[in-house]
């Protein structure tokens, strides 16, 4: 499928936890290569479950999942080689410095120590921390600094697909702005496909080329933010979401 220009294809994906909780009720969507694609929805909509399935961490019960041309869950190893993932509230190893946190992940992806150091240096640049801060223990970092390092860790490895789960959740205005700026500049410069989830409509509207609106495990709408606003006759995506979810209910 990647050869057809798609980075991700989901077809009728169902995921149930236990016997009763159906997190995904047969969702289908495709993510073209080289775009920032948003999954938008309230808490408990199924955003994180969708990202975890694509990130090879959770097995879907039914349906088709293809990531970068590889079928999941059969080709998990191949997919892991080509993606990077930033979970919601991802932490750092608090006894390691920011630099060591970057280097650890770089070593996992790189072929040798020299390449790992180069990769970590790229991460350090993306994190935008001073040299002094970079060599402080992560336990001394503010939440914003930790998130910048965690994001840099996901962006630096040269993945073909970057998965970001609520990258700005819980951050103050300044930190959230820095994170959004970093994601935007990175995607523009590298052409990497980014799939990000958020419940912040304004953030998605600002960052994403295309979005899906998801609610209670079902896709409500899919398209460009402008298109969705037009379809719902709304002035912003937030209003569009409320109208479209309301129509759906």
């Amino acid at each position: 499928m990647s050869s057809n220009g798609y980075a991700i294809r989901l077809e009728g994906v169902v995921k149930t936890f236990g016997k009763k909780v159906q997190a995904l009720k047969g969702i289908s969507f495709t993510v073209p290569k080289g775009v920032i694609y948003g999954i938008l929805g309230p808490n408990g909509a199924g955003k994180t479950t969708t990202l975890r399935i694509i990130a090879t961490l959770v097995r879907h019960d039914r349906g088709v999942v293809e990531v970068l041309g590889h079928r999941l869950p059969e080709e998990r190893a191949e997919v892991r080689e080509r993606i990077s993932y930033l979970p919601e509230d991802a932490g750092l190893y608090h006894r390691l410095t920011g630099w060591e946190n970057l280097l650890y992940f770089a070593m996992i992806y790189a072929d040798d120590m020299e390449s790992a150091k180069e990769m970590a240096a790229r991460g350090a640049e993306l994190a935008g921390l001073s040299e002094k801060d970079l060599h402080r223990k992560a336990s001394e970092y503010s939440k914003g600094m930790s998130r910048r390092v965690a994001l840099a860790r996901a962006l630096m490895v040269g993945a073909d697909l970057v998965l970001l789960d609520e990258p700005t959740s819980g951050l103050d205005v300044f930190s959230a702005y820095t994170i959004r700026k970093t994601i935007k500049e990175f995607a523009k410069r590298s052409g990497t496909t980014v799939l990000m989830s958020s419940h912040n409509m304004l953030e998605v509207e600002e960052l994403c080329d295309r979005v899906i609106l998801i609610n209670k495990g079902t896709i409500v709408a899919e398209g460009e933010p402008k298109e969705l606003k037009h379809r719902a006759n709304a002035s912003n995506l937030e209003e569009a979401f409320i109208k479209l979810v309301g129509e759906f209910d």
Binding site: R80, D89, G91, I108, Y109, R153
Partner: peptide, 13 residues
């Protein structure tokens, strides 16, 4: 608990 495992598990390690 410290939310470091999830990101690690999605890597090729």
């Amino acid at each position: 608990e410290r939310k470091t495992f999830e990101a690690l598990l999605a890597t090729p390690v």
